[in-house]
Design a binder for these strands. Structure first.
Lengths: 324, 324
DNA sequence: GTCGATTACGGGACGCGTAAGTATT
DNA sequence: AATACTTACGCGTCCCGTAATCGAC
């Protein structure tokens, strides 16, 4: 399947907002024919019918609404990014930073790159601030180069390739394959999963829930009983696998962002899914999800034998302390 | 300035990850020369130098790192979106929904569109789940069509154009122009702003902070003292204006997402900025920001004289109650 | 008749691969 | 000499604007 581009999302947004292809053409400053062809192309590469054409306009299909939600999440981010770029264009002007720090293969022995930046890769987690605080205290003059990525595979690859000095990643001991060599690790914390439900939801009075409870929900009717927020795709996949081990087929899906997930879950009596430390939201009750299969460890990882070998364990201990 | 496309972000990511243009070419399955030209084009349209070329590779500049952070936020969302599209392609297959609901101009009189969906537009806020819960209870058979958008202007435009039935938006009474006619509104709540700082930060022991406190911080040194998360661009802009009224020039900037903002703030002793209800994060202390200029109201809005005229005020009252 | 969507046609722009050229180690 | 980035050339493809056609109200 071909890629979708940002221009395509803008087009979908314009068609939906104006309610017609010609309206979108006016809004985007192009011709009707162009919009029609573009939309056909987008529908072809996605394999979806996105709008029902009518003689008086066009209305999004269910698939179209899904892509529109995505557009609403992505487009503001992109616009913000371009804005920042424009702002800083004058500022950074003819700046001469970006000195080379290539370190070809993993010859990563030696001091922890004093004088240079510390390159930290991490999955999104609430431990991260505690860790960066600690790092800022321990290495006051070292700027931090932070790379957020949900995928442990990507982070491990970068670590092994010598392109990261340190990484924070999630490991599911029951579901994941054990970590291979060339990196050392220390456990920072065990993360507890939580589910969130509307205050009126039948599960809301429970002290905690299990996977079996979710199965019972799922049997109740069609629809989408479990929603996670964007950026938690790995969480979705792991939960599906964990449920399968119980013989449950959970329809888990990912919403566009946190707000979207929460609002939509309340509207359709669905269940929210998230890691440790959910934000308190009026009208939402959070419950711990207790199940052995969903145990999840936060690990600190660094190249085996690298300059951080000793500091790694210390850092993990400090982070563990703050995490409580 | 030209637009950036998703392919461009993937290219930047590949160059940064492999550390060289030729490495990126291998990873993306194209030629070295192509990568070089693409990168030149991207740097031309953004007006930024993104990578320092070296005879042994390429290293991102500060501007490049900014765009890379954006890429790390946007690309997972897009990939997720394409994944969902691929999943649902079979599912929705030859579905025949998407019935026309064009409602040309604003002839929006009549019943609240019984039998059709209720089209709700909203800014991202913690009240939303309470509202959607209430709506689900009041209109059990009506599917909810949710459109999230940070900009009140966009939402009001859609409301006036008859393309939304109801909207939740923010209004800053001190800073914004009063709302013009053709829509009715009711206050849902007054939102309090919060700032977050690392536990070691000098402000952490204060019971609350004011804009003047932030000025003192800003005078302390260079850097970026105030960070907001993505999707809160309006919050950034309003705070800058509010600070200017106090004669303060606050360097406020927006991070890529919540995790990024928090981790980065801790690393550089910066201050986080957010609306009501910050999530508890280990190592972070949240304080209310007390200042008249930063008062912010959450409004429920609907087309003047529309079918929701009476229900609007009731809904706002219900939401106000849940919001506490 | 008006508004809206689709389709055909012709021209121009853009992007790609190949390959030669330059610089650094 | 090897590696990596840049640049020139030639070609194919895709995209756009115009405009004609069809349908619905």
């Amino acid at each position: 399947m071909g890629d979708i581009e940002i221009q395509d999302l803008r087009l979908l947004r314009a068609v939906a907002d104006t309610g017609s292809l010609s309206g979108a053409a006016r809004q985007l400053g192009t011709s009707q024919g162009n919009i029609s062809r573009q939309l056909q192309r987008i529908e072809r590469v996605t394999g979806l019918t996105l709008f029902q054409r009518h003689s008086r306009g066009a209305a999004p299909t269910q698939a179209g609404r899904m892509l529109l939600r995505g557009a609403d999440t992505v487009l503001p981010l992109v616009d913000q990014l371009l804005l920042s770029a424009a702002e800083h264009a004058a500022e950074y002007d003819a700046e001469r930073d970006g000195e080379y720090d290539g370190e070809h293969g993993g010859e990563g022995a030696g001091a922890p790159r004093t004088g240079r930046s510390l390159r930290l890769g991490a999955v999104p987690t609430t431990v991260l601030p505690a860790l960066t605080s600690t790092l800022a205290t321990l290495l006051p003059q070292t700027p931090l180069d932070l790379r957020l990525d949900e995928s442990p595979e990507v982070l491990l690859g970068l670590l092994r390739g010598g392109r990261l000095d340190l990484a924070v990643l999630r490991h599911w001991p029951v579901l994941d394959a054990p970590l291979s060599g060339r990196v050392d690790t220390a456990v920072i914390a065990e993360e507890r999963l939580h589910v969130g439900v509307a205050a009126q939801h039948p599960l809301a009075r429970r002290p905690c829930v299990t996977l079996a409870d979710l199965r019972d929900l799922s049997g109740q009717g069609p629809g989408i009983p479990v929603l996670a927020e964007a950026g938690h795709g790995a969480l979705c996949r792991h939960l599906v696998v964990a449920a399968e081990r119980h013989g449950i087929r959970l329809p888990v899906s990912c919403a566009a962002d946190r707000t979207d997930a929460t609002a939509r879950a309340c509207a359709m009596s669905a269940v929210l899914l998230g890691y440790h430390g959910p934000a308190p939201v009026p009208g939402i009750v959070h419950l711990p999800l207790n199940d052995d299969a969903t145990r999840c460890l936060l690990l600190l990882a660094w190249p085996a034998g690298g300059g951080l070998a000793r500091h790694g364990a210390e850092l993990a201990a400090l982070a563990r302390e703050t995490y409580g």
